[in-house]
């Protein structure tokens, strides 16, 4: 079946199999593999995207449900003149190791800071509790989000 959606400001059309997730469509149909395929059951947050401005797991959205909607992926987060402050802060703080969780965390952290520019520690930890990281133990991820919050 054919779907039409806006991703990172651009109109896209794609022919998808009806059972495909938005995640699969982004990664395999639209050339946007930044959203990651770690668990495909909403337990890890690696595929976090904004669907009509709301943070969701792309693996739990049927591609057909995104028809006519707007999606922002990690690829569309940065302004034209360089990385998004959250992206820069992740590198600066040493929050990136294997990096497989990073795109999802970057999207979730950017979403948090857009709503809550100066989060408390509890707000920060709860907001990122759906994003698993296996490498860092999270400490440097918290540092990165605080750094990005301070830069705003």
């Amino acid at each position: 079946m054919r779907i039409e959606l806006t991703v990172n400001g651009e109109r896209h059309e794609a022919d998808v199999w009806a059972g495909e997730s938005l995640l699969f469509a982004l990664r395999e149909r639209l050339g946007l593999p930044g959203s990651k395929n770690a668990c495909e059951q909403g337990e890890c947050g690696s595929c976090s995207v904004l669907l009509d401005g709301t943070l969701v797991c792309a693996c739990l959205v049927l591609a057909a449900q995104a028809d006519g909607h707007e999606v922002v992926t990690v690829e569309g987060l940065a302004p034209e003149d360089g990385p998004h402050p959250v992206q820069e802060a992740f590198v600066q703080a040493g929050a990136v190791q294997c990096g497989f969780c990073t795109p999802g965390l970057v999207v979730a952290a950017a979403d948090l800071l857009a709503r809550t520019p100066d989060p408390t520690d509890d707000e920060l930890r709860e907001a990122l509790s759906g994003n698993l990281c296996r490498c860092t133990g999270y400490a440097k991820i918290f540092d990165a989000v605080r750094l990005a919050a301070g830069a705003s």
Binding site: P33, G34, P83, Q87, F90
Partner: peptide
């Protein structure tokens, strides 16, 4: 020295190509 990762920014922007990509 504390060195920035060369793969850091590509990993934060989704450009870095993992095996499944």
């Amino acid at each position: 020295e504390a060195v920035r990762r060369a793969d850091g920014i590509p990993k934060t922007t989704g450009e870095f190509a993992y095996a499944s990509d």
